[in-house]
Design a protein around this nucleic acid. Sequence first.
RNA 1: AAUCCGGUAGACGAAUGGUUAAGUCGCCAAGCUCUCAACUUGGAGAAUGCGGGUUCAACCCCCGUCCGGAUUCCCA
Length: 470
Amino acid sequence: MTVRTRFAPSPTGVLHIGSVRTALFAWLFARRHGGAFILRIENTDRERSTQASVDTILDGMAWLGLDADEGPVFQTQRFDRYREVLDEWLATGKAYKCYCTKEELDALREAQLARGEKPRYDGRYRDVTEPRDGVDPVIRFRNPLDGDVVVHDAVKGEVHFANAELDDLIIARSDGTPTYNFTVVVDDADMAISHVIRGDDHLNNTPRQINMLAALGAPIPQYAHLPMILGEDGAKLSKRHGAVNVLDYRDAGYLPGALVNYLVRLGWSHGDQELFTRDEMIALFDLAAINRSASAFNPSKLDWINQQHMMSAPAAELAGGLAGQYQRLGVDTTTGPDLAVVIAAYRERATTLADMAAATRYCFEDFDTFDAGAAKKHLRPAALDALIAVRAKLAGLADWVEAELSAAIQSVADELGLGMGKVGQPVRVAITGAGSSPSLDVTLALVGPHRALTRLDMAIEFVQARAAAQ
RNA sequence: AAUCCGGUAGACGAAUGGUUAAGUCGCCAAGCUCUCAACUUGGAGAAUGCGGGUUCAACCCCCGUCCGGAUUCCCA
Protein backbone atom coordinates (compact mmCIF):
# COMPACT_ATOMS: atom_id res chain seq x y z
CA MET A 1 0.00 0.00 0.00
CA THR A 2 1.19 3.47 -0.80
CA VAL A 3 1.50 5.55 2.31
CA ARG A 4 -0.20 8.93 2.02
CA THR A 5 -0.51 11.20 5.04
CA ARG A 6 -1.77 14.72 5.38
CA PHE A 7 -1.58 17.74 7.60
CA ALA A 8 -4.82 19.67 7.57
CA PRO A 9 -4.68 22.90 9.54
CA SER A 10 -7.39 25.50 9.45
CA PRO A 11 -5.97 28.95 8.77
CA THR A 12 -7.50 30.75 11.70
CA GLY A 13 -4.39 31.78 13.59
CA VAL A 14 -0.71 31.10 13.95
CA LEU A 15 0.97 27.76 13.30
CA HIS A 16 0.73 26.33 16.77
CA ILE A 17 3.48 24.28 18.35
CA GLY A 18 1.01 21.45 18.96
CA SER A 19 -0.09 21.41 15.33
CA VAL A 20 3.52 21.25 14.27
CA ARG A 21 4.11 18.13 16.28
CA THR A 22 1.12 16.57 14.53
CA ALA A 23 2.46 17.68 11.15
CA LEU A 24 5.88 16.34 12.05
CA PHE A 25 4.58 12.87 12.87
CA ALA A 26 2.56 12.72 9.65
CA TRP A 27 5.56 13.95 7.68
CA LEU A 28 7.94 11.49 9.36
CA PHE A 29 5.62 8.60 8.71
CA ALA A 30 5.34 9.47 5.04
CA ARG A 31 9.10 9.90 4.71
CA ARG A 32 9.79 6.71 6.65
CA HIS A 33 7.71 4.71 4.20
CA GLY A 34 8.59 6.56 1.05
CA GLY A 35 5.06 7.87 0.83
CA ALA A 36 3.50 11.24 0.16
CA PHE A 37 2.81 14.05 2.62
CA ILE A 38 -0.03 16.33 1.65
CA LEU A 39 -0.80 19.79 2.95
CA ARG A 40 -4.46 20.64 2.99
CA ILE A 41 -5.81 23.94 4.17
CA GLU A 42 -9.21 23.53 5.79
CA ASN A 43 -10.75 26.89 5.25
CA THR A 44 -14.43 26.12 4.91
CA ASP A 45 -15.13 28.58 7.70
CA ARG A 46 -14.71 31.68 5.60
CA GLU A 47 -15.47 33.95 8.53
CA ARG A 48 -12.40 32.96 10.47
CA SER A 49 -9.95 31.93 7.76
CA THR A 50 -7.33 34.47 6.73
CA GLN A 51 -4.59 34.71 4.15
CA ALA A 52 -2.19 35.92 6.84
CA SER A 53 -2.74 32.67 8.66
CA VAL A 54 -2.14 30.66 5.49
CA ASP A 55 1.13 32.53 5.02
CA THR A 56 2.31 31.87 8.55
CA ILE A 57 1.52 28.18 8.21
CA LEU A 58 3.50 27.99 4.98
CA ASP A 59 6.41 29.93 6.48
CA GLY A 60 6.49 27.75 9.55
CA MET A 61 6.42 24.51 7.59
CA ALA A 62 9.18 25.77 5.31
CA TRP A 63 11.34 26.84 8.23
CA LEU A 64 11.02 23.44 9.84
CA GLY A 65 11.72 21.65 6.59
CA LEU A 66 8.40 19.81 6.59
CA ASP A 67 8.02 19.82 2.85
CA ALA A 68 4.78 18.71 1.28
CA ASP A 69 4.63 16.50 -1.79
CA GLU A 70 1.19 17.78 -2.71
CA GLY A 71 -0.64 20.93 -1.95
CA PRO A 72 -1.42 23.20 -0.41
CA VAL A 73 -4.90 22.16 -1.39
CA PHE A 74 -7.57 24.60 -0.29
CA GLN A 75 -10.96 23.21 0.57
CA THR A 76 -12.63 26.32 -0.79
CA GLN A 77 -11.38 25.21 -4.20
CA ARG A 78 -13.24 21.96 -3.85
CA PHE A 79 -16.77 23.20 -3.19
CA ASP A 80 -18.06 21.77 -6.47
CA ARG A 81 -16.91 18.34 -5.45
CA TYR A 82 -18.56 18.62 -2.02
CA ARG A 83 -21.76 19.79 -3.71
CA GLU A 84 -21.63 16.76 -5.95
CA VAL A 85 -21.46 14.37 -3.00
CA LEU A 86 -24.14 16.29 -1.16
CA ASP A 87 -26.52 16.03 -4.12
CA GLU A 88 -25.85 12.38 -4.50
CA TRP A 89 -26.42 11.66 -0.82
CA LEU A 90 -29.60 13.69 -0.87
CA ALA A 91 -30.82 11.74 -3.88
CA THR A 92 -30.00 8.38 -2.33
CA GLY A 93 -31.25 9.25 1.13
CA LYS A 94 -27.84 9.08 2.79
CA ALA A 95 -28.44 12.67 3.79
CA TYR A 96 -31.55 14.78 4.28
CA LYS A 97 -32.63 18.34 4.70
CA CYS A 98 -33.40 19.55 8.18
CA TYR A 99 -35.56 22.62 8.61
CA CYS A 100 -34.95 23.21 12.29
CA THR A 101 -34.11 26.79 13.18
CA LYS A 102 -31.21 27.60 15.44
CA GLU A 103 -33.72 28.65 18.08
CA GLU A 104 -35.45 25.30 17.97
CA LEU A 105 -32.13 23.53 18.25
CA ASP A 106 -31.16 25.66 21.23
CA ALA A 107 -34.45 24.90 22.92
CA LEU A 108 -34.00 21.19 22.28
CA ARG A 109 -30.53 21.25 23.73
CA GLU A 110 -31.61 23.09 26.84
CA ALA A 111 -34.50 20.74 27.44
CA GLN A 112 -32.24 17.72 27.12
CA LEU A 113 -29.68 19.17 29.46
CA ALA A 114 -32.40 20.03 31.96
CA ARG A 115 -33.48 16.39 31.92
CA GLY A 116 -29.88 15.31 32.42
CA GLU A 117 -29.60 13.86 28.95
CA LYS A 118 -26.82 14.12 26.46
CA PRO A 119 -27.65 17.04 24.17
CA ARG A 120 -28.05 15.98 20.57
CA TYR A 121 -30.25 16.31 17.54
CA ASP A 122 -33.36 14.16 17.84
CA GLY A 123 -33.77 13.36 14.14
CA ARG A 124 -37.10 15.14 13.83
CA TYR A 125 -36.63 15.88 10.11
CA ARG A 126 -35.15 12.53 9.30
CA ASP A 127 -38.22 11.39 7.41
CA VAL A 128 -39.79 14.70 6.50
CA THR A 129 -39.81 15.31 2.78
CA GLU A 130 -41.94 18.45 2.63
CA PRO A 131 -40.05 21.75 2.63
CA ARG A 132 -40.83 24.23 5.36
CA ASP A 133 -41.54 27.78 4.32
CA GLY A 134 -39.21 30.53 5.44
CA VAL A 135 -36.41 28.27 6.60
CA ASP A 136 -33.28 27.52 4.60
CA PRO A 137 -32.49 23.93 5.49
CA VAL A 138 -29.20 22.49 6.57
CA ILE A 139 -28.19 19.08 5.30
CA ARG A 140 -27.69 16.30 7.81
CA PHE A 141 -26.01 12.95 7.39
CA ARG A 142 -28.29 10.02 8.10
CA ASN A 143 -26.18 8.23 10.69
CA PRO A 144 -26.94 4.57 11.42
CA LEU A 145 -29.28 4.22 14.40
CA ASP A 146 -27.75 1.16 15.97
CA GLY A 147 -24.66 -0.98 15.98
CA ASP A 148 -21.15 -0.06 16.98
CA VAL A 149 -18.34 1.66 15.17
CA VAL A 150 -14.91 0.37 16.09
CA VAL A 151 -11.96 2.66 15.54
CA HIS A 152 -8.74 0.70 15.15
CA ASP A 153 -6.33 3.31 16.30
CA ALA A 154 -2.58 2.83 16.08
CA VAL A 155 -2.12 4.79 19.29
CA LYS A 156 -5.25 4.29 21.37
CA GLY A 157 -6.03 0.74 20.36
CA GLU A 158 -9.59 -0.41 19.64
CA VAL A 159 -12.11 2.22 20.60
CA HIS A 160 -15.79 1.37 20.45
CA PHE A 161 -18.59 3.85 19.87
CA ALA A 162 -22.28 3.09 19.85
CA ASN A 163 -24.16 4.62 16.94
CA ALA A 164 -26.95 5.30 19.39
CA GLU A 165 -24.64 7.88 20.97
CA LEU A 166 -24.17 9.70 17.69
CA ASP A 167 -26.66 12.03 16.08
CA ASP A 168 -27.23 13.19 12.53
CA LEU A 169 -24.57 15.80 12.12
CA ILE A 170 -24.86 18.83 9.90
CA ILE A 171 -22.77 18.41 6.76
CA ALA A 172 -23.89 21.56 4.96
CA ARG A 173 -24.96 24.85 6.47
CA SER A 174 -28.15 26.61 5.49
CA ASP A 175 -26.12 28.74 3.10
CA GLY A 176 -25.08 25.57 1.34
CA THR A 177 -21.43 25.53 2.45
CA PRO A 178 -20.09 22.18 3.67
CA THR A 179 -18.82 21.66 7.20
CA TYR A 180 -15.64 20.21 8.60
CA ASN A 181 -16.48 16.58 9.35
CA PHE A 182 -17.91 16.16 5.88
CA THR A 183 -15.15 17.85 3.92
CA VAL A 184 -12.52 15.88 5.81
CA VAL A 185 -14.16 12.66 4.77
CA VAL A 186 -14.55 13.60 1.12
CA ASP A 187 -10.98 14.88 0.97
CA ASP A 188 -9.39 11.96 2.77
CA ALA A 189 -11.22 9.63 0.40
CA ASP A 190 -10.45 11.59 -2.77
CA MET A 191 -6.82 12.07 -1.79
CA ALA A 192 -6.50 8.39 -0.94
CA ILE A 193 -5.12 9.15 2.48
CA SER A 194 -3.84 5.88 3.92
CA HIS A 195 -2.98 7.06 7.43
CA VAL A 196 -4.85 9.76 9.27
CA ILE A 197 -2.43 11.08 11.87
CA ARG A 198 -3.98 13.88 13.88
CA GLY A 199 -4.62 15.19 17.37
CA ASP A 200 -6.68 13.09 19.73
CA ASP A 201 -9.22 15.86 20.02
CA HIS A 202 -10.56 14.28 16.81
CA LEU A 203 -10.97 10.81 18.22
CA ASN A 204 -14.61 11.48 19.05
CA ASN A 205 -15.26 12.63 15.49
CA THR A 206 -13.82 9.48 14.03
CA PRO A 207 -16.85 7.19 14.25
CA ARG A 208 -18.94 9.76 12.40
CA GLN A 209 -16.26 10.04 9.77
CA ILE A 210 -16.04 6.28 9.43
CA ASN A 211 -19.80 6.13 8.87
CA MET A 212 -19.53 8.76 6.17
CA LEU A 213 -16.55 7.05 4.57
CA ALA A 214 -18.70 3.94 4.41
CA ALA A 215 -21.51 5.95 2.80
CA LEU A 216 -18.99 7.11 0.25
CA GLY A 217 -17.88 3.54 -0.36
CA ALA A 218 -14.32 4.57 0.50
CA PRO A 219 -11.78 2.45 2.37
CA ILE A 220 -11.20 3.27 6.03
CA PRO A 221 -7.71 4.66 6.59
CA GLN A 222 -5.45 3.65 9.44
CA TYR A 223 -5.97 6.13 12.24
CA ALA A 224 -3.39 7.38 14.72
CA HIS A 225 -4.64 9.88 17.27
CA LEU A 226 -1.84 11.76 18.93
CA PRO A 227 -1.96 12.94 22.52
CA MET A 228 -1.97 16.65 23.16
CA ILE A 229 0.92 18.89 24.11
CA LEU A 230 0.24 20.85 27.26
CA GLY A 231 1.85 23.92 28.74
CA GLU A 232 4.60 23.70 31.33
CA ASP A 233 2.03 23.67 34.11
CA GLY A 234 0.02 20.85 32.59
CA ALA A 235 -2.77 23.14 31.40
CA LYS A 236 -3.79 23.48 27.79
CA LEU A 237 -1.03 25.19 25.83
CA SER A 238 -1.82 28.84 25.25
CA LYS A 239 -0.26 32.24 24.81
CA ARG A 240 0.26 32.70 28.51
CA HIS A 241 2.77 29.83 28.44
CA GLY A 242 4.97 31.89 26.13
CA ALA A 243 5.53 31.17 22.49
CA VAL A 244 3.00 28.92 20.78
CA ASN A 245 3.76 30.21 17.30
CA VAL A 246 6.59 28.17 15.80
CA LEU A 247 8.00 31.23 14.08
CA ASP A 248 8.57 32.74 17.50
CA TYR A 249 11.08 29.95 18.09
CA ARG A 250 12.90 30.90 14.93
CA ASP A 251 13.01 34.50 16.10
CA ALA A 252 14.19 33.42 19.54
CA GLY A 253 17.19 31.72 17.95
CA TYR A 254 16.27 28.06 18.03
CA LEU A 255 17.40 25.78 15.24
CA PRO A 256 14.65 24.10 13.26
CA GLY A 257 16.37 20.73 13.65
CA ALA A 258 16.46 21.19 17.40
CA LEU A 259 12.83 22.17 17.71
CA VAL A 260 11.85 19.20 15.59
CA ASN A 261 14.08 16.95 17.72
CA TYR A 262 12.43 18.24 20.87
CA LEU A 263 8.94 17.81 19.46
CA VAL A 264 9.54 14.31 18.19
CA ARG A 265 10.31 13.25 21.75
CA LEU A 266 7.00 14.60 22.97
CA GLY A 267 4.81 11.56 22.61
CA TRP A 268 7.36 9.35 20.94
CA SER A 269 10.54 7.66 22.01
CA HIS A 270 13.15 5.28 20.74
CA GLY A 271 14.81 3.55 23.66
CA ASP A 272 16.80 6.10 25.62
CA GLN A 273 17.93 8.15 22.63
CA GLU A 274 17.36 11.87 23.07
CA LEU A 275 19.25 13.41 20.18
CA PHE A 276 18.20 12.70 16.63
CA THR A 277 19.25 13.98 13.26
CA ARG A 278 16.54 14.39 10.69
CA ASP A 279 17.64 11.21 8.93
CA GLU A 280 17.63 9.25 12.17
CA MET A 281 14.10 10.36 12.93
CA ILE A 282 12.97 9.28 9.51
CA ALA A 283 14.70 5.94 9.81
CA LEU A 284 13.39 5.21 13.30
CA PHE A 285 9.93 6.73 13.42
CA ASP A 286 7.23 4.25 14.21
CA LEU A 287 3.56 4.65 15.09
CA ALA A 288 3.77 1.78 17.55
CA ALA A 289 6.14 3.75 19.78
CA ILE A 290 3.79 6.70 20.18
CA ASN A 291 2.71 7.42 23.72
CA ARG A 292 -0.96 7.52 24.67
CA SER A 293 -0.83 10.30 27.21
CA ALA A 294 -0.49 14.05 26.90
CA SER A 295 2.87 15.64 27.59
CA ALA A 296 3.96 18.99 28.92
CA PHE A 297 6.16 21.35 26.94
CA ASN A 298 9.40 21.88 28.82
CA PRO A 299 11.45 24.91 27.69
CA SER A 300 14.57 23.96 29.61
CA LYS A 301 14.84 20.64 27.83
CA LEU A 302 14.32 22.42 24.52
CA ASP A 303 17.20 24.70 25.47
CA TRP A 304 19.44 21.73 26.16
CA ILE A 305 18.56 20.07 22.89
CA ASN A 306 19.08 23.30 21.03
CA GLN A 307 22.53 23.68 22.54
CA GLN A 308 23.38 20.10 21.65
CA HIS A 309 22.39 20.80 18.07
CA MET A 310 24.33 24.04 18.04
CA MET A 311 27.42 22.15 19.19
CA SER A 312 27.16 19.61 16.41
CA ALA A 313 25.76 21.58 13.49
CA PRO A 314 28.10 22.75 10.72
CA ALA A 315 29.01 26.40 11.22
CA ALA A 316 27.50 27.25 7.86
CA GLU A 317 24.16 26.04 9.14
CA LEU A 318 24.28 28.45 12.05
CA ALA A 319 25.70 31.48 10.30
CA GLY A 320 22.52 32.58 8.57
CA GLY A 321 20.44 32.48 11.71
CA LEU A 322 23.16 34.17 13.72
CA ALA A 323 23.41 36.98 11.17
CA GLY A 324 19.68 37.45 11.53
CA GLN A 325 20.05 37.76 15.29
CA TYR A 326 22.70 40.46 14.96
CA GLN A 327 20.42 42.26 12.62
CA ARG A 328 17.65 42.16 15.19
CA LEU A 329 20.06 43.66 17.71
CA GLY A 330 21.21 46.29 15.26
CA VAL A 331 24.80 45.05 15.37
CA ASP A 332 26.97 45.76 12.34
CA THR A 333 29.14 42.70 11.80
CA THR A 334 31.17 43.96 8.86
CA THR A 335 34.10 45.12 10.98
CA GLY A 336 34.43 42.18 13.33
CA PRO A 337 35.51 38.57 13.11
CA ASP A 338 34.13 36.06 10.67
CA LEU A 339 30.90 34.51 11.95
CA ALA A 340 32.37 31.04 11.63
CA VAL A 341 35.01 32.03 14.18
CA VAL A 342 32.41 33.40 16.56
CA ILE A 343 30.40 30.22 16.20
CA ALA A 344 33.41 28.03 16.91
CA ALA A 345 34.12 29.99 20.08
CA TYR A 346 30.55 30.20 21.34
CA ARG A 347 28.60 27.21 20.14
CA GLU A 348 28.89 25.46 23.49
CA ARG A 349 28.41 28.61 25.52
CA ALA A 350 25.01 29.65 24.25
CA THR A 351 21.67 27.91 24.30
CA THR A 352 20.23 29.82 21.37
CA LEU A 353 21.49 31.91 18.48
CA ALA A 354 19.93 34.90 20.20
CA ASP A 355 22.05 34.24 23.28
CA MET A 356 25.09 33.86 21.10
CA ALA A 357 24.49 37.15 19.37
CA ALA A 358 23.87 38.98 22.62
CA ALA A 359 26.96 37.49 24.27
CA THR A 360 29.28 38.39 21.40
CA ARG A 361 28.37 42.02 20.77
CA TYR A 362 31.74 43.02 22.18
CA CYS A 363 33.40 41.44 19.17
CA PHE A 364 31.75 43.97 16.88
CA GLU A 365 30.86 46.94 19.03
CA ASP A 366 32.82 49.10 21.43
CA PHE A 367 31.47 49.79 24.88
CA ASP A 368 32.17 52.59 27.30
CA THR A 369 31.44 50.97 30.64
CA PHE A 370 32.47 47.71 32.20
CA ASP A 371 29.97 45.43 33.83
CA ALA A 372 29.78 46.85 37.35
CA GLY A 373 30.07 43.59 39.23
CA ALA A 374 32.92 42.26 37.12
CA ALA A 375 34.79 45.55 37.30
CA LYS A 376 34.43 45.75 41.05
CA LYS A 377 35.82 42.29 41.44
CA HIS A 378 38.60 42.27 38.88
CA LEU A 379 39.53 45.79 37.83
CA ARG A 380 41.14 46.78 41.10
CA PRO A 381 44.43 48.42 41.88
CA ALA A 382 46.04 45.06 42.47
CA ALA A 383 45.46 44.23 38.81
CA LEU A 384 47.16 47.34 37.48
CA ASP A 385 50.63 45.86 37.01
CA ALA A 386 49.24 42.85 35.24
CA LEU A 387 47.13 44.94 32.87
CA ILE A 388 50.04 47.19 32.02
CA ALA A 389 52.35 44.24 31.46
CA VAL A 390 49.84 42.42 29.28
CA ARG A 391 49.18 45.57 27.31
CA ALA A 392 52.89 46.00 26.64
CA LYS A 393 53.39 42.37 25.77
CA LEU A 394 50.46 42.26 23.37
CA ALA A 395 51.46 45.51 21.72
CA GLY A 396 54.77 43.94 20.80
CA LEU A 397 53.30 40.78 19.35
CA ALA A 398 54.26 40.08 15.78
CA ASP A 399 51.41 37.65 15.11
CA TRP A 400 47.97 38.07 16.69
CA VAL A 401 47.30 34.36 16.82
CA GLU A 402 46.06 32.16 19.62
CA ALA A 403 49.35 30.42 20.38
CA GLU A 404 51.20 33.74 20.69
CA LEU A 405 48.41 35.30 22.70
CA SER A 406 48.25 32.58 25.30
CA ALA A 407 52.04 32.51 25.56
CA ALA A 408 52.04 36.25 26.17
CA ILE A 409 49.48 36.07 28.96
CA GLN A 410 51.26 33.11 30.54
CA SER A 411 54.61 34.88 30.49
CA VAL A 412 53.14 37.90 32.26
CA ALA A 413 51.75 35.65 34.98
CA ASP A 414 55.12 33.95 35.32
CA GLU A 415 57.08 37.20 35.40
CA LEU A 416 54.85 38.80 38.00
CA GLY A 417 54.62 35.59 39.99
CA LEU A 418 50.85 35.62 39.79
CA GLY A 419 48.37 32.84 39.15
CA MET A 420 46.62 32.90 35.81
CA GLY A 421 43.42 33.92 37.53
CA LYS A 422 44.99 37.14 38.75
CA VAL A 423 46.05 38.07 35.26
CA GLY A 424 43.38 36.52 33.09
CA GLN A 425 40.27 37.86 34.73
CA PRO A 426 41.28 41.53 34.67
CA VAL A 427 42.24 41.14 31.02
CA ARG A 428 38.96 39.41 30.27
CA VAL A 429 36.91 42.15 31.86
CA ALA A 430 39.01 44.73 30.05
CA ILE A 431 38.46 43.33 26.60
CA THR A 432 34.92 41.96 26.85
CA GLY A 433 33.48 44.28 29.46
CA ALA A 434 32.26 41.33 31.48
CA GLY A 435 33.48 38.42 33.52
CA SER A 436 32.99 35.46 31.24
CA SER A 437 34.06 34.53 27.74
CA PRO A 438 35.92 31.73 25.97
CA SER A 439 39.56 31.17 26.88
CA LEU A 440 41.60 34.35 26.67
CA ASP A 441 43.59 33.50 23.57
CA VAL A 442 40.37 32.79 21.69
CA THR A 443 38.71 35.89 23.06
CA LEU A 444 41.63 38.12 22.15
CA ALA A 445 41.76 36.67 18.66
CA LEU A 446 38.05 37.37 18.30
CA VAL A 447 38.40 41.00 19.31
CA GLY A 448 41.52 41.70 17.31
CA PRO A 449 44.58 43.80 18.19
CA HIS A 450 43.13 47.24 17.74
CA ARG A 451 40.10 46.81 19.95
CA ALA A 452 42.02 44.74 22.49
CA LEU A 453 44.73 47.35 23.03
CA THR A 454 42.25 50.22 23.14
CA ARG A 455 40.19 48.43 25.74
CA LEU A 456 43.23 47.54 27.82
CA ASP A 457 44.11 51.24 27.85
CA MET A 458 40.59 52.00 28.92
CA ALA A 459 40.80 49.44 31.72
CA ILE A 460 44.17 50.75 32.88
CA GLU A 461 42.75 54.26 33.10
CA PHE A 462 39.75 52.92 34.92
CA VAL A 463 41.93 51.19 37.51
CA GLN A 464 44.20 54.19 37.93
CA ALA A 465 41.20 56.42 38.52
CA ARG A 466 39.90 53.98 41.02
CA ALA A 467 43.24 53.82 42.83
CA ALA A 468 43.42 57.60 42.92
CA ALA A 469 39.97 57.80 44.42
CA GLN A 470 40.95 55.67 47.35
C1' A B 1 -25.09 15.48 32.19
C1' A B 2 -23.59 11.57 28.67
C1' U B 3 -19.84 9.24 25.66
C1' C B 4 -14.69 8.67 24.66
C1' C B 5 -9.41 9.32 25.93
C1' G B 6 -5.66 9.89 29.57
C1' G B 7 -2.94 9.55 34.79
C1' U B 8 4.99 6.23 36.17
C1' A B 9 9.95 11.70 40.41
C1' G B 10 9.26 19.02 39.01
C1' A B 11 9.28 17.74 33.29
C1' C B 12 10.15 14.05 29.07
C1' G B 13 9.84 9.08 29.23
C1' A B 14 11.52 3.03 29.60
C1' A B 15 9.87 -1.40 31.63
C1' U B 16 6.73 -9.85 26.53
C1' G B 17 2.48 -10.29 33.92
C1' G B 18 8.66 -11.78 36.57
C1' U B 19 15.91 -8.59 39.40
C1' U B 20 16.59 -3.18 43.52
C1' A B 21 10.72 0.81 38.49
C1' A B 22 15.91 2.34 32.81
C1' G B 23 17.63 6.71 30.62
C1' U B 24 17.22 12.19 29.65
C1' C B 25 16.22 17.50 31.09
C1' G B 26 16.17 20.35 35.43
C1' C B 27 18.19 20.66 40.57
C1' C B 28 22.54 19.87 44.21
C1' A B 29 27.80 18.64 44.73
C1' A B 30 32.74 17.38 43.17
C1' G B 31 36.43 17.20 39.27
C1' C B 32 38.68 19.87 35.07
C1' U B 33 39.89 25.22 34.60
C1' C B 34 42.21 32.06 33.35
C1' U B 35 36.11 33.04 33.80
C1' C B 36 31.71 31.06 31.70
C1' A B 37 30.35 27.04 29.30
C1' A B 38 31.20 22.13 27.50
C1' C B 39 32.69 17.55 29.50
C1' U B 40 33.31 13.65 33.55
C1' U B 41 31.76 11.66 38.21
C1' G B 42 28.51 11.43 42.28
C1' G B 43 23.77 12.78 44.81
C1' A B 44 18.69 13.99 46.11
C1' G B 45 13.97 13.09 43.99
C1' A B 46 8.70 7.60 42.51
C1' A B 47 5.75 2.53 46.44
C1' U B 48 3.39 3.86 39.00
C1' G B 49 -3.69 9.14 40.96
C1' C B 50 -6.68 6.44 44.87
C1' G B 51 -9.38 1.80 46.57
C1' G B 52 -10.49 -3.14 45.70
C1' G B 53 -9.95 -7.76 42.79
C1' U B 54 -7.51 -11.76 39.64
C1' U B 55 -2.50 -14.11 40.07
C1' C B 56 2.89 -17.63 42.98
C1' A B 57 3.82 -12.59 40.90
C1' A B 58 0.42 -6.42 38.58
C1' C B 59 2.94 0.09 36.12
C1' C B 60 0.84 -3.79 32.87
C1' C B 61 -5.35 -7.59 33.35
C1' C B 62 -10.59 -6.63 35.75
C1' C B 63 -14.08 -3.48 38.75
C1' G B 64 -14.93 1.02 41.20
C1' U B 65 -13.49 5.94 42.26
C1' C B 66 -11.02 10.78 41.81
C1' C B 67 -8.68 14.24 38.73
C1' G B 68 -7.57 16.23 33.79
C1' G B 69 -8.89 16.57 28.64
C1' A B 70 -11.94 15.91 24.22
C1' U B 71 -16.71 15.52 21.97
C1' U B 72 -21.94 16.29 22.17
C1' C B 73 -21.38 24.08 17.60
C1' C B 74 -25.05 25.94 11.08
C1' C B 75 -16.17 26.11 14.53
C1' A B 76 -12.18 23.16 12.74
